[in-house]
Computed example of a mutant assay.
Amino acid sequence: MKTTFLAAAFAALGLAANAADLGGAHLMVGSDTTYPPMETVDPATGQIVGFDVDVVNAICERINCTAEFVTTAWDGIFGALQQGEFDLVASGVSITDERKQTMDFTEAYLVVSQAVLMQVEDEGMTIDDIKASGRKLAAQTATTNADLAEELVGRDNVALYDTFVGAVVALQNGDVAGVIIDGTSAAAYEKEFAGDLIIGITGLQADPLGLVFRKGDENVAAFNEGLAAIQADGTLDALVAKYWTTN
């Protein structure tokens, strides 16, 4: 996988002599916890863990807040944010112009390239091969992954699932030819199902990921400052190293 950080953007933000202070605010964070390694539920402890969790907690350490993650289905997560069920969304959310019309994002904390996860025996298959085979590409509904799948193979050749777990199960069962998914999570599934699943196609569309707030939320500025701080002191790089081996 490849990760790219927007160093220039962080530098432009600058670091104030005194960091923003949210006064110990306890923030509720909505997250679709079916997307390892970004966020998932640890079966041993029942705790929500993952890269996004660590990023938000690291930011909160810098700007004096605490975060409580709440498992929320992807379908409806932004509506729940607007209704005040939580204060922000941290769920591997791609920053898009369409989404920016109705919600505010922090600066990007990670840029991910989309990929196609497939069965090992199909290694070497191309998008053209998938289209010619008549088999479908799977993706999670209402995601940029689903949008890209439709661009690549056409809507009739896309199978949509409520969760990426459902899409991966369909792949394992041979119901679909591949799953379009962020390269970060594709790597996690490839590792979990080594010998069965493989990242077959890489280098597709790149998406910047950001934390999501309601339109006009003043906490965006504080989170941007905290994000700049964990980029500057190496914490963000350390978290990437914790979860992935970059090429």
Rank of each mutant, 00 (worst) to 15 (best):
A90Y: 09
E150D: 15
G203E: 12
G200K: 04
D75K: 14
A80N: 07
L152S: 07
G203C: 08
S31F: 05
L22V: 01
H26M: 05
N224A: 02
D182A: 10
Q205Y: 04
M1T: 11
V153D: 07
Q140V: 00
R135G: 01
L15C: 06
A73D: 15
Y189F: 14
Q82R: 15
I198Y: 10
G30N: 11
A7H: 07
I63P: 11
Q82Y: 10
E190K: 10
V153H: 10
K131T: 05
F5N: 06
L22N: 11
D129I: 00
L137Q: 01
L22D: 13
G200T: 03
Y35L: 11
A232Y: 02
T40D: 14
Q119D: 11
D32E: 14
I180W: 03
N224W: 02
R214Y: 05
P208E: 09
V41C: 04
L88K: 08
V165N: 15
I127M: 04
M1W: 04
F86N: 13
L227G: 06
E192F: 10
T33L: 03
V70D: 15
W244Q: 07
F5T: 04
K131W: 05
T96F: 10
G178R: 06
A241H: 04
R62L: 06
R155P: 09
D237V: 00
S113E: 15
T245A: 07
F193R: 10
D122K: 10
T4V: 06
T246N: 13
E121D: 13
G30P: 03
G23E: 03
D104T: 04
L239V: 00
G203S: 08
T143A: 10
T106K: 10
E218N: 14
L171D: 04
A115Q: 14
G216S: 03
P43G: 08
M38A: 15
A194K: 12
V56D: 12
V55E: 14
N145F: 03
